[in-house]
C-alpha cells in the first residue's frame, strides 16, 4: 500500500544481513586481530564439527573467537534486541513516545533487584538467582510508577516520565546504600551497574536469546491489538480488544525482558528509546513490523556501541555511559519536537 509497506521486507532482510556482518567483523576486532575470513572458518568449524576448516590457524584464534569474543558479542546483540522490543512495547502500551525501560525507572528497579541478589551472595541467604530478582525489581518499579502516574484511570505522558525519573532516583539511592553496606564487592557492582558485556558466558547468551525470542513472539502475536490500544482504551475495548488483559500480558513480558537484559549487562539506557523511534520513521508505526525491525536494529546498534568501547577506544568505557551520552541528547530532541506537535 504505502511506501513503508513495500520497503519492509527489504529493511528486515537488510538489517538481518547487517547484524550477521557486524558480528563477524566485530569478532575480528580487538587486541589480537583476526580477519573476517578466519572468523567465519572458526565458527563454521565449530558448527559443522569439521576440524579441517581451522587447519593452519593459530589455535588461540579458536579460543578467542568462541570463548572470549562471541559470547560477549551475542550477548550485546541479544540485549540490544531485548531493550528495543521493550521500548516498542512500553511506548505502545503507555501511548508515550518517550517511554523506555530506562526513562520509566524500570531498569533501575531491575538493577536494584539484581544488586540485592548479588550482595546476598556469600551471606546467610546464599546464592540467589539474579535474573529472577531483576525481574521482580522491574515489576515492582513498574507497578509503583504506574500507580504514581495514574489519576482516575488516566495516564498523562509527562507525569509518567516524571514518575519514572523519581522512582529511578529513589532506587539509585537504594543501590548506593547497598554499595555502602557491602564495600568489598563494590568494584564488581559499580562496573556492572554502568553496563558492560565483558566476560559474558554462553549460558547468559542462551538465557538472553530465549527470552528475547519469546518476547518477540508475544509482541508480534499481540501486535495488532497494540496498534489499536494506541487509539485509547475505550476505543480498543469497543473494537473487541481485551485491552486490560493484553496490557497486563505485554507489561509482564516487557518487565521480564528488562529483568533478563539488566541482569546480563547492567543498566543500558536509551536503546529502547532511540531504536523504536528511528525504525518507526522507516518502517511505519505498525507494531507487528516495528517489533521485528526494532529488535534487529537494537541488536545492531548495541553491538556497534559495545565494539567501540571494547576495540576502538583506548580504555574500556562502560557501555551504559556511551549509550547515555548518545541517547540523552536524542531524548531532548524528541521531547522538544513532541512539544511542538502537542501545542
Amino acid at each position: 500500500m504505502t511506501s513503508t509497506h513495500r520497503a519492509y521486507p527489504w529493511l528486515a532482510m537488510g538489517l538481518m544481513l547487517a547484524v550477521c556482518i557486524a558480528i563477524v567483523l566485530s569478532t575480528g576486532l580487538g587486541f589480537i586481530p583476526i580477519t573476517p575470513a578466519e572468523v567465519v572458518r572458526v565458527i563454521a568449524s565449530r558448527l559443522t564439527g569439521d576440524t579441517g576448516l581451522t587447519a593452519g590457524l593459530d589455535p588461540v584464534f579458536s579460543y578467542v573467537v568462541l570463548d572470549v569474543r562471541l559470547p560477549r558479542i551475542l550477548a550485546a546483540v541479544g540485549v540490544g534486541a531485548g531493550l528495543a522490543i521493550c521500548g516498542v512495547l512500553f511506548q505502545g502500551l503507555l501511548l508515550n513516545p518517550l517511554a523506555d525501560p530506562y526513562t520509566l525507572g524500570i531498569s533501575s528497579g531491575a538493577a536494584f533487584g539484581a544488586s540485592v541478589a548479588l550482595l546476598a551472595d556469600g551471606t546467610l541467604l546464599g546464592h540467589l538467582p539474579v535474573p529472577l530478582f531483576a525481574f521482580a525489581g522491574a515489576m515492582a518499579a513498574l507497578v509503583v510508577v504506574l500507580w504514581l502516574a495514574s489519576h482516575d484511570g488516566q495516564l498523562s505522558a509527562n507525569t509518567l516520565i516524571l514518575s519514572g525519573v523519581i522512582v529511578g532516583a529513589i532506587l539509585a539511592a537504594g543501590i548506593s546504600f547497598m554499595k555502602y553496606l557491602a564495600d568489598e564487592q563494590v568494584g564488581v557492582i559499580v562496573f556492572w551497574l554502568m553496563g558492560s558485556f565483558a566476560g559474558r558466558t554462553w549460558a547468559q547468551v542462551g538465557v538472553v536469546f530465549a527470552t528475547v525470542l519469546a518476547g518477540l513472539l508475544v509482541a508480534v502475536y499481540y501486535g495488532r491489538d497494540l496498534n489499536i490500544i494506541a487509539l485509547g482504551s475505550r476505543t480498543s475495548d469497543s473494537l473487541g480488544v481485551e485491552t486490560g488483559r493484553v496490557r497486563k500480558i505485554l507489561l509482564v513480558a516487557a518487565s521480564l525482558l528488562v529483568g533478563v537484559c539488566v541482569s546480563v549487562s547492567g543498566i543500558i539506557g536509551f536503546i529502547g528509546l532511540i531504536v523504536p523511534h528511528l525504525m518507526r520513521m522507516v518502517a511505519g508505526p505498525d507494531n507487528r513490523r516495528l517489533t521485528v525491525v526494532a529488535a534487529l536494529a537494537g541488536g545492531l546498534l548495541l553491538l556497534m556501541a559495545d565494539t567501540v568501547t571494547r576495540a576502538v577506544l583506548p580504555a574500556e568505557v562502560p557501555i551504559g555511559v556511551l549509550t547515555a551520552l548518545i541517547g540523552g541528547p536524542f531524548f531532548c530532541y524528541i521531547f522538544r519536537r513532541r512539544g511542538a506537535f502537542h501545542g
Binding site: 501511548l95 487509539l231 485509547g232 475505550r234 508505526p285
Partner: peptide, 13 residues
C-alpha cells in the same frame, strides 16, 4: 463507539 477524545500518538496513516 466514537469517543470524545481522540489522541493518536503514532503516525498511522
Amino acid at each position: 463507539l466514537v469517543p470524545q477524545d481522540f489522541a493518536i500518538p503514532f503516525a498511522f496513516t
